[in-house]
């Protein structure tokens, strides 16, 4: 399976740092900020961004996990999936600015599910979206607020974001194998 590296570890580190700065800037302060990663790799990314924000601001930003499986619109198209942990930081999301974090933005359907899930958990003041890679091909009117890398792709290509936590190294790859398209 031919794979092409688009970002290496240091590219990723810089992109994450930049997103952290943009989030601070756009949010005008970080007091009411909550980062919620969408499992699995969105959670690692949320933790990295939270870590950078904390370093920059000297002020801890809560980060958690939001599993959207139970809200997906394609449940009946695939075998049943195991649930991933949902972990809402203490203090909840009511009245706060929630930044949803995912590794790859593609059709937008996962984010649609996440918005539904948030709705059942509380009422945030605002919801933003941060992704490592925006690969295009949106099927819903959803746009990211913070992007690590805009990456035009063909539908028969797959984008893989790798994190040390689960994959052993940090990298963004494009695989041109239709069977692995996501």
């Amino acid at each position: 399976m031919p794979a092409r590296e688009v970002l290496d570890a240091s590219d990723m580190r810089r992109a994450i740092r930049r997103m952290a700065h943009e989030i601070i800037e756009k949010s005008r302060g970080v007091d009411d900020l909550v980062l919620l990663g969408i499992p699995t790799r969105g959670v690692w990314l949320a933790q990295r961004i939270a870590h950078d924000i904390t370093e920059i601001e000297g002020h801890a930003v809560p980060s958690g996990a939001l599993d959207v499986t139970l809200y997906r619109d394609d449940l009946r198209l695939r075998q049943v999936r195991a649930l991933e942990p949902t972990n809402i930081p203490t203090g909840g999301i009511d009245g706060r600015t929630v930044v949803l974090v995912d590794d790859v933005l593609y059709s937008g359907r996962t984010i649609r599910s996440a918005l539904d899930a948030l709705n059942d958990i509380g009422r945030p003041a605002a919801v933003r979206l941060a992704v490592m890679v925006d690969r295009g091909h949106r099927e819903l009117p959803i746009r990211p607020d913070f992007v690590g890398k805009n990456l035009p792709t063909a539908t028969d290509e797959a984008v893989r974001v790798r994190f040390v936590e689960s994959d052993g190294d940090d990298a963004v790859l494009i695989e041109s194998d239709a069977e692995h398209a996501r």
Binding site: L77, V80, L83
Partner: peptide
């Protein structure tokens, strides 16, 4: 959820 939450074996997929 685990019994009904996915494609059924009859091929909803």
């Amino acid at each position: 959820y685990l019994l009904l939450g996915g494609a059924s074996s009859e091929g909803d997929g």
